[in-house]
Design a protein around this nucleic acid. Sequence first.
DNA 1: AATCGGCGGCTTTTT
DNA 2: GCCGCCGATT
Length: 792
Amino acid sequence: MALALNAENELLKDLNEPQKEAVLHGDGPLLVLSGAGSGKTRVITRRVAHLVRFRGVFPWRILAVTFTNKAAREMRERLVQLLGPQAHELVVSTFHSSSSMILRRALKDPRMVDHKVAELMGLTPSFVIYDDGDQLQLIKRAMREARVDPIMQPREILHRIDGEKNAARLPDQMVVDVDDARGVVVQKTYHAYQKLLRAANAVDFGDLLLLLVALLRQRPDVLDQYQKRFRHILVDEFQDTNPVQYELLRLLAPPERRPNLVVVGDDDQSIYRWRGASVDNILDFPEHFPGARVVKLEQNYRSDQNILDAAHAVIRRNSRRMPKKLWSDRPKGENLTLLLNRDERAEAQEVARRIHGLQREGFIKYSGMAVFYRTNAQSRVLEEAMRLARVPYTLVSGRSFYDRAEVRDAAAYLRLMVNPRSDADLLRIINTPARGIGDTTVERLVDFANQSGVSLYEASAAPERITGLNSAAVRRLSGFHALVSSLHAFAQESQDAASAVDQMLKETHLVESLQTEGSDESMTRAENLREFLGAAQEFDLNRAAAAVAASTAGDGDTAPVPPEEADLDTSPLTADIPPLNAFLEQISLVGDADAEVGEGRVALMTLHAAKGLEFDAVFITGMEDGVFPHSRALHGGESEDGGEEMAEERRLCYVGFTRARRRLFVSLAQCRSLFGELRYNPPSRFLAEVPQELFGIAEQELPPAPKEAPFTKKKRNWADEDDGPRVDRTYSQAADGEGIGGDVRGMRVRHEQFGMGRIISADGQGPNAKVTVDFGGQVGLKRVIARFLLPG
DNA sequence: AATCGGCGGCTTTTT
DNA sequence: GCCGCCGATT
């Protein structure tokens, strides 16, 4: 017993009081309001470990959900450290991934064979998950088939459908006013779209949650099973839950039963409202779950006080917050630094220069620094500056590897292997590599399939029945059908993902066809496909290792299962999913998990991507009204959400600031080109909200901004220059704003292609102003865009 | 069947 | 300013 106590103390020793309270909280709902850097992951992992080791809870009774795979992986790793192999019996995964697994299990369950859940009709356990691109394709098809008025962009319809799914509404449950033409379009398309998905044995991301909710609502027997199993549910980043996710939680943990539901989050860090997340979920939690205990974690262990003060100064302007204030017993630390720049290039240069400086001082490594921006479009200039200044950097952006065309092709083949009904995948690769099946043939195939009510794959089985096809087309189609059919048969037998990938690459000749092309680019693509095979091999190895670990767990000294629950399924959710399906699931839901921030490199990312990370030094660029806060949020007062958009921008700013441990640089440009146009934005309102005394003095003189830029010079080679204060020479020919800059006639100019010349006449304004130039000799008169000219 | 050019669009994007 | 889509062209 003494030993156990010591072990327990070990588990609690470096926790502060509220953290301990959350870890030791007994039964019933608990809301942990956890400010930035206050150790929330630590609370969740310690609580899980405590439940298992000191409260006799079986690990398989615990469901821990996160939003991102990265968060899930980190949590799992920490739990393995705390619990050893037993941790593999826990369910630690994302909402989507656990929903997907529960759905697959349910579809497989013999009791479900005649499942009465209409929304699930047509789905088999090997359903595939459609991504963004697939969705859009399907939307277009749905629009055609439902014959809707093309008054809306497919993208917009998709977005609206997504919204409906996030709100847990099926097509029939959509609330549409008859006069609302657009709403009618959305609803009709939504109906057709769902039909197409089911016909293809496919789901989209939204379906994973929505269909599970529908299933649990209509099948009390299934619901009961999971309610009984998961006696402890923990949710991370709860501020980002959307209504379906919340509904799912309420089904699994009904409020009236005082469930052991622990949600952890920070309303101030809710930045995904536009994706359907609802801050109300966290704000109203105590109401929805009567008797919920609330614990606040307000001690920040990450940032110096100055940084926290700045962050607080910004976030306090939001109304409708849970009252709390972060504090730290860390020193005040360095002042914040404001970087004023003439334009976005100067800004990027300055950031690169400061990064060099910090690195040279020796206290902060490249890997401890990050540059944030509001929109991806801003990254280009920053990247360029980093390259020229020889600052090693990584661009942190989602899931690059699996987004490459050739990898997606390979994935499409794999999905067809497990699910030949997947029309979107078939259309993607029917002529990849080129096998002479052109648009006309495909069109006829699609028509035929529609008329016969079968999938494209099935339709291609008897191509001679398709009207209008010549014999060559018939032959090619049946060849293609044979290929898919053979791959499908192989997949049924295959015991691991890698052999299936290998077989697929062999039979399709994807790699060879790229190699015959011979260009550098196609060689890289071929290489990517081999890497894809490598990923499958690695996946198999990991899976084997996890299986071993799970089988050796299980013999702990936890309490016995009560006899009435003896038939409860306690196996890992991943059990029984065939390897190839599991691999595909990982590709769809996890993406490129290994593409981690490079060691020894500065990280460049959007503010959204920065959530959950921390760095010694942070640069926030583009601190201008219109950039950050984004222009869309600027005129938000009268919009339907009453300034919620601005509130979200402010939370984003708070997230950005609180990523910094020691140094925070905020940077703005007096003007920047946006959509090819020079824009003069006022400094961000968030800057004005930060008390002056937190800043050192703005260190640079702000050079006068250019008004118009008739000549954009080629990039200077910044890296070759010294580090002194610089005056960029890009706009040495600043003009006065009239026409393309006063009278330019007669001016000597140089053009990259045409050489030297003299301006004859000019017309137009702004970036697309054109001039007629006499280049003399063979070239003669040319009308060119003024931007492409250098001063001669 | 592949390529070229014009046109529109355009925040963020865990899954 | 850049990308992606669509239609037209060879």
